[in-house]
Write a protein that binds this DNA or RNA. Structure first.
Length: 422
RNA sequence: GGAGGCGUCGCCUAGUCCGGUCUAUGGCGCCCGCCUGCUAAGCGGGUUUGGGUCUUAAAGCCCAUCGAGGGUUCAAAUCCCUCCGCCUCCGCCA
């Protein structure tokens, strides 16, 4: 939810942001009108309610005929108060509905446009020249199957398409990867968290995943719970409706969880292997901080992602996501995309978003500012490792014989230098 | 799944039976001030959150807030209903 004060003081900034996202900027005037309506009707209700209350006190003190007369008056008043209350409630509701349609105000510098309008910030590392090495790179599934590391067929038998078993070296590789990520997070000062993967509707909504992403989310109807698509959801809900203490600096959490995504609307895309699946594991960084420090913290999150990517030694590029591809909560988002040799293109491995106060406002997370008053906190998130990273590791470190060299940083946790078939 | 108990503005707590001076009591903690070689003690004051209004701003005033949401009533912390959470016991169980 955006800050209504910003909307009132500087509607043009919001309009420009909406346009950059390729969304309706007319909504701004609608919301302003609804807000005006909300305040007017609220004031009308409050004035009459004050009268009712003072009259109620006279009733309590009065006796006999005087009391009867007052009762008649206040009875009539009560009906009008009830009426105005309903009007004010409806105005509030209308405002709430409308304001939720406005996305977060983008950070200056975010490229305009949609999915393909990203700006490449930097390339890190150089893709291997397999032709020069004299062999054609196998794709991750071919490599994994030879290693008996992934079983797609039985995943499908047990759970359906886009499910899989990580087996043997595959299971060990994932655990080593996640352990390495968590180890880095803890060393950096993050509080490690194993989070719930089922959450209540208000948390899923508050985190912002029931708007544009609603189709992506699994829902358990019998229990009215949602399966999370990332531990961001649970970590965002963690401090909902709280006044947190940021006087010692940002609160940094590293969530470890299984993630569930319906992948609706991606039929036929990435059907091979474990690139796009319904269930995977992820280590996620999540930060609560003073909004004044949010942009600097965002840079740090990106740096920590880079630190982790360096550990798996794959070439990647960093993109500054365009406004239309941000999602409603983010003001800015950087993705790191690893080179996938079999596809000859870059695929997303990490994503870090600065949600400024947008997410926290909806979830009611504030902090005590120096003046003593409360202020809405900023939230940020970023990926530290996911199951998908296995794709990049296998393909970029494969050898002609189908074996895979284990990146040095993973060896302590994996206990192997090379993954060898058979 | 069943039975019972509980949920009050940081923590503890009075109030709920029997609706109205509850504008929610008291203690602890915390903040400010006084006093004081220093500290402690003592004394005085302050201390939920959100919103509205007024103002350059602050103060003030108003509304809401006693787990959440509905209802009854002129009037709800208090009565009724639903839900949530915690505790105790029973049942069931990977």
């Amino acid at each position: 939810m955006i800050d209504i004060k910003l909307l009132r003081d500087d509607p043009d900034v919001v309009r420009a942001s909406q346009r950059a996202r390729g969304e309706d900027d007319g909504i701004v005037d609608e919301v302003l009108a609804a807000e005006e309506q909300r305040r007017t009707s609220l004031t009308a209700y409050e004035q009459l309610r004050a009268e009712q209350k003072s009259l109620g006190k006279q009733v309590a003190a009065a006796q006999g005929e005087e009391k009867a007369a007052l009762l008649a008056r206040t009875k009539e008043l009560s009906a009008r108060v009830k009426d105005l209350d309903a009007t004010a409630g409806a105005a509030q509701e209308r405002f709430d509905t409308l304001v939720r349609r406005i996305g977060n105000v983008i950070e200056p510098g975010v490229p305009s446009g949609g999915e393909d309008d990203y700006v490449v910030v930097e390339h890190v590392g150089t893709p291997r020249d397999f032709a020069a090495e004299g062999f054609a790179p196998r794709d991750h599934l071919e490599l994994a199957e030879a290693l008996d590391a992934v079983d797609m067929a039985r995943g499908a038998k047990v759970s359906g398409a886009r499910f899989y078993f990580l087996k043997g070296l595959g299971a060990r590789l994932e655990m080593a990867l996640l352990a390495t990520a968590m180890e880095q997070a803890v060393a950096t000062g993050f509080v490690p968290m194993v989070t719930p993967t089922l959450v209540a509707p208000q948390v899923m909504r508050g985190a912002g995943f029931l708007d544009a992403h609603a189709d992506e989310v699994y829902r358990l109807e019998a229990d009215d719970l949602y399966l999370v698509g990332t531990s961001e959801v649970a970590l965002a809900g963690y401090h909902a409706e709280e006044i947190i203490d940021l006087s010692q600096g940002p609160l940094r959490y590293a969530g470890s969880s299984t993630c569930y995504r319906r992948e609706a609307g991606s039929y036929g895309k990435d059907t091979r292997g474990i690139i796009r699946v319904h269930q995977f594991n992820k280590i996620e960084m999540f930060v609560y901080c003073d909004p004044a420090q949010a942009a600097a913290e965002h840079a740090r999150l990106l740096a920590w992602e880079r630190e982790m990517l360096a550990k798996i030694e794959v070439p990647y590029r960093i993109i500054d996501t365009a406004a239309g591809d941000l999602g409603s909560s983010a003001a800015r988002k950087f993705d790191c995309e690893a080179w996938v040799p079999s596809q000859g293109r870059y695929r997303e491995l990490t994503s870090t978003s600065n949600c400024t106060t947008f997410q926290a406002r909806r979830l009611g997370t504030r902090f005590r500012s120096e003046g003593g008053g409360t202020q809405v906190a900023a939230t940020l998130n970023g990926t530290l490792a996911t199951t998908r990273w296995i794709v990049a590791i296998l393909e970029n470190h494969q050898r002609a014989d189908g074996s895979v060299v284990v990146p040095e940083a993973l060896r302590p946790h994996l206990g192997l230098d090379v993954l060898t078939p058979g």
